[in-house]
């Protein structure tokens, strides 16, 4: 592996998550190195989103460990909020703060969590809003802009915290087809800038183009994990092959 000599940013060890008696994640092992772009693919209900939500502790894992730069965040002594400030998240449903304008959305976390000054927060927010092309809309409220625009603001909000890792939970699944491209293009630019990302997605073309590694999940386990070339052209696991065949078929 090309990142073999670096230490992982996020390391998931034997992660287990149960909802009641339903086992959603079974013994997940998984490493993310700096600069990695990992796309997690798989059918609905395979545990992709749950894995992502466990990584930033929106779901409490039932068992296992999650290490961030070698530090176990499941340990009671580590501050969950400090950790979350370093691991950004972009949601399927955008989840912009409805009581704030676009600019305030990107500033509040910096001021409240990172304790930045208002001026610094505004400059940083403007920097990233410009990057996602939403700087003309700083005065708009979330209900006044389109889905694609909301998601771009959500990305800027996450970037404004200057996280070490950014998690994407199906960022384009709630969008009208004509708005998917603008969000993927913004994400592509982030890849070029070298941001470490874990992306749960159904956009196979995007996953094939940008990822350094692709993780295929099936029924709560990682069924296959490899480079995009191998996953998309020559998968070893028959379940991967079946999923991709069915997925491509559904697209037509």
């Amino acid at each position: 592996m090309m990142n073999g000599n670096k230490s992982p940013v996020i390391e998931v060890r034997h992660l287990i998550k149960n909802f009641g008696k339903v086992e959603v994640l079974m013994d997940i092992d998984f490493k993310t190195y700096p600069g990695d772009v990992i796309c997690v693919i798989g059918s609905s209900g395979s545990g992709k989103s749950t894995l992502l939500r466990c990584i930033n502790l929106l779901e409490t894992p039932t068992g296992g460990d999650i290490l961030f730069n070698g530090k176990n965040i499941m340990d009671r002594k580590t501050s969950v909020t400090d950790y979350r400030a370093k691991v950004g998240m972009v949601f399927q449903q955008f989840n912009l703060f409805n009581n704030m304008t676009v600019l305030q959305n990107c500033m509040t976390g910096q001021i409240k969590v990172l304790k930045r000054s208002k001026k610094e927060a505004e400059e940083t927010a403007m920097k990233y809003l410009t990057q996602v092309g939403m700087d003309p809309y700083i005065n708009a409220k979330p209900h006044q802009i389109s889905g694609g625009q909301k998601q771009r603001v959500a990305i800027a909000r996450a970037l404004a915290m200057e996280p070490e890792v950014l998690l994407f939970d199906e960022p384009t699944s709630a969008l009208d087809p004509e708005m998917v491209g603008e969000v993927l293009e913004v994400m592509r630019e982030l890849v070029e800038n070298g941001l470490t990302m874990i992306i749960v997605t159904h956009e196979m073309a995007f996953a094939r183009d940008v990822s350094t590694r692709v993780v295929f999940m099936d029924k709560g386990v990682i069924a296959e994990e490899d480079t995009p070339e191998i996953i998309f052209n020559n998968p070893t696991n028959p379940r991967t092959r079946e999923f991709l065949a069915r997925f491509m078929h559904d697209q037509d």
């Binding site: 909020t81 979350r84 998240m89 449903q93 989840n95 703060f97 976390g109 915290m161």
Partner: peptide
């Protein structure tokens, strides 16, 4: 919406 809480928690609030 619970998404508002999750988004706030996700930025470390």
């Amino acid at each position: 919406d619970v998404g508002q809480t999750e988004a706030a928690k996700a930025i470390g609030m």
